[in-house]
């Protein structure tokens, strides 16, 4: 679904509409944060972020200036000249986040971006994402297997059935107040309430997926 929204994949049936107009080719209005490492390993953190502005025709000096600013915002000011292999998994994700956000896309597509990270880093990244999002509210499509992460971050949780041929089986609004803190929001009673409600519909799908030996989508 994310790849279809990004224009990387043609939908097998139907059409993708972005803000009301049909999508042809790559989605230029979207930024995509991949699950895997997608940074260019031969570029430093700074070059990786700055290069994202080249297609927009921004001069190199200006791009580097902006890239520095974004790396500072994601907390990597001290690591601008590191190559990706010298960074930790969480730091690489933050560079990728800066790389995506520097282009100021209207839609953010995120494919389990924090999946490979450990629990603590995940929480820090979640809060970072919430902060950045709060500063400049964009449409975010965030795919995750982690129900708690989904509730803590989202306004709306859409549950998908077990693949193949996954479809939408439920939609739940999340009324938790903002600004949120990933660690604290989990302690609120309404969090548990929503969790229980969504889990009820998710559970059978998870069991189905286990039976098939595949992963489920939440």
């Amino acid at each position: 679904m994310l790849n279809a929204s990004a224009g990387l994949l043609k939908p097998s049936d139907g059409e993708v509409e972005i803000f009301g107009s049909p999508l042809a080719g790559l989605n230029a209005r979207a930024g995509y944060l991949f699950q895997q490492d997608a940074l260019m390993p031969w570029k430093t953190a700074l070059q990786n972020v700055a290069v994202a502005l080249e297609p927009k025709g921004v001069s190199r000096a200006e791009a580097e200036l902006k890239a520095r600013e974004w790396l500072r915002r994601v907390g990597l000011a001290a690591f601008v000249d590191r190559y990706p292999h010298m960074l930790s998994g969480g730091q690489r994700k933050r560079v990728a986040l800066a790389q995506m956000l520097i282009r100021d896309p209207e839609i953010l597509l995120m494919d389990e971006p924090f999946g490979p990270l450990d629990a603590q880093t995940r929480q820090i990244m979640g809060n970072l994402l919430l902060d950045l999002w709060a500063a400049n509210r964009k449409a975010v499509l965030f795919v995750t297997h982690d129900l708690e992460e989904a509730i803590a971050l989202a306004d709306r949780v859409v549950v998908m059935s077990a693949g193949p041929a996954a479809r939408i089986i439920g939609e739940f609004p999340v009324m938790l107040p903002r600004p949120r803190d990933i660690a604290e929001v989990r302690l609120e009673p309404s969090f548990h309430h929503i969790h229980k409600e969504i889990w009820a519909s998710l559970r059978t799908e998870v069991q189905k997926a286990y039976a098939q030996g595949e992963g489920a989508s939440a």
Partner: peptide, 23 residues
Amino acid sequence: VVLANARMLGMNERQLLRHVYWP
């Protein structure tokens, strides 16, 4: 993945050649 990411950043064929394929 690196290629898809570079394309999502809006790179055209020439830029892909320079920043991705060539290195």
